[in-house]
């Protein structure tokens, strides 16, 4: 195995393009090294992107907040402006693993690992985040929901890597929230995850994005769930409709982490709870 640590994104893309064998990007390594340890992969090349300055920064601009691809969960949790604007995204990122994992794990890695149960992805999709993708030839910006195509697969082409994740500027009277269910209090993979981002106008929900994780081959943006709460003050009926829409949208599997029945049911429960949190955060009453 070859180990490279380039200092520009372009250089990284060139290394990935040039490698004939299996090439992997290393940012936090919290998924990559597990797969190597379990013998699931044998990389010919690992490209460490942490020495690339563009991947290391959190930048706040008029357009929003850009989070570099090697920014760790712990760094995100320490960023005041990010926490204020996108608490749901930060709480989702911070749910990934222990403090040890937090020092290393990244949301770009969480996205590229393409697990249906990735914690940060539903929150990113709910927030309307985009991924800045760099290849040897071109640079493109793609909505996060377009990246994951199935369990473990992405729409990234050979030689492409994510340089940063771009969160839009959060609108006024808006907030997001993320909740997941795990059997223990820590250290588990989500059995169900729900990310919600909503905007209020005069106390009424004007727009919303509701995203479910771990209940389908990819995280799913549930338009019907958003519709269930738009135009409401999140009254009991709206919450019930939201829960029903979320449960309806589920297409989960039975596995060691949960049953179809359970996931379907709990998706609705968590959606209700997450909506209440986001609603309160946005100033709703």
């Amino acid at each position: 195995m070859r180990f490279e640590s380039p200092t520009t994104t372009k250089e990284a893309a060139a290394l990935l393009t040039g490698e004939l064998g299996d090439a992997y990007i290393l940012a936090g390594g919290t998924d990559l090294l597990v797969r190597m340890k379990l013998g699931l992969i044998e990389p010919a090349l690992v490209v460490d992107i942490k020495k690339i300055p563009a991947t290391q920064e959190i930048n706040v601009s008029d357009k929003g907040i850009s989070i570099g691809a090697s920014v760790s969960g712990a760094t995100m949790s320490e960023h005041a402006k990010l926490n204020k604007s996108w608490p749901g995204v930060v709480e989702a990122a911070n749910l990934i693993g222990s403090d040890q994992i937090q020092s290393r794990c990244t949301i770009a890695g969480n996205l590229c690992n393409a697990s249906p149960a990735a914690d940060s992805v539903p929150a990113l999709i709910a927030a309307g985040a985009k991924a800045v993708i760099v290849g040897e030839q071109r640079r493109r910006t793609v909505p996060v929901e377009k990246i994951i195509t199935g369990p473990g697969t992405t729409s990234l082409q050979k030689g492409e890597l994510i340089e940063s994740i771009l969160l839009p500027k959060q609108a006024a009277r808006s907030a997001d929230a993320y909740l997941r269910f795990i059997p223990r209090t820590e250290m588990d993979i989500a059995v169900v995850g729900v990310g919600i981002n909503l905007t209020l106008a005069r106390g009424v929900i004007q727009s919303a994005r509701v995203v479910l994780g771990a209940v389908a081959p990819t995280p799913i943006l549930v338009a019907k769930a958003a519709k269930a709460i738009v135009g409401t003050k999140l009254d009991a009926q709206a919450l019930e409709n939201l829960a029903a829409a979320c449960s309806d949208a589920c297409d989960p599997i039975d596995d060691k982490r949960g049953t179809i029945e359970y996931r379907t049911r709990v998706a609705g429960v968590l959606a209700r709870r997450a909506a209440v949190i986001a609603f309160k955060r946005a100033g709703g009453a």
Binding site: F3, L26, G29, L33, V46, D99, Q100, I101, S103, R104
Partner: peptide, 8 residues
């Protein structure tokens, strides 16, 4: 703080 098993 890191897990050294997850660092090359």
């Amino acid at each position: 703080l890191v897990c050294s098993c997850l660092v090359l």
